[in-house]
Amino acid sequence: MHPAYSVILFTTASGAGYGLLVMLGIGAAAEWLPADRLFGFVAFAVALGAISFGLVASAFHLGRPERMWRAFSQWRSSWLSREGVIAVATYVPTGIFGIGWVILGTNHSAWSIAGLATAGFAAVTVACTAMIYRSLTTIPQWDNAWVVANYLALSIMTGAVLVNALIELTVLPAEPASGVGSIAIVVAYLIKRLYWRAIDTEKPRSTSGTATGLGRFGTVRQLIAPHTEENYVMREMGYRVARKHAAKLRTMASVAAFVLPMLCLAVQTATIRPWAAIPAGLAAVSALVGVLMERWLFFAEARHVVTLFYGAEKQ
């Protein structure tokens, strides 16, 4: 599948933003994060900024962005529509939670309920994003049991390293999230590995023989393409990354998304404030770059069954 930069940016940025909201919501309810106004302001600005930036980036992917509002109508059948509805709905509890934290300076008791609602809506939005891909049976690498877990784990992981970096940067009188971050990194890494193993060992579902129905006569191969130039279908669905490059890119993405942030968090625990903000910040930057690479691979490694009509043998 063609990796559209707008969609890669959208899922990475908004995923991190929603992950940060999950951390803030749970952090307030668990009485781990105090209702510090400066920290609250920065954290909500980063979370809402990343989410809103992501939503705007996704609009650039549309042919008619001015009609974007119509996408809220088909939530009964479409995961894309559900994602839009929940994404917008998430602003409501987030707004209440944010007003309490930043303006009134409280995130306890009743306000923490708004925080938990924020965390819940944020997680559901990320799950809806993942379901858009998961529900496409035309792409075996996306119609995979690990996709939703993968999106949620990476969202929470980036949220955890972000909240950790913000705690250190604002010198918040609270325990930094290096422990939570490390656990999130390990979980996300394991899920990513399981996803990669699943798509590497998946048996082909269709062949050029079943796609054309000509398999009954023997091996089918395309002799003459229907057109001399690439068409939309080939450009959009025909993109693929060579297997040897994919292996290299997986390693690079793993180093940036998991290994380096883990090392940075280890360095951070051995560093005193305010210097601990440096490794904490680097962990967040590296994780985000790694997730961008992972998201690019998620597209580039996905192979659409329509390629069976254009010369692919099995998919």
Partner: peptide, 21 residues
């Protein structure tokens, strides 16, 4: 009503939908 999100073309296994840029 179409916003040109292209998701339908991803969902089609037969490559029947083509986007008009």
């Amino acid at each position: 009503l179409c916003i040109g999100c292209k998701l339908c073309s991803w969902a089609c296994p037969y490559g029947a939908r083509e986007y008009d840029g």
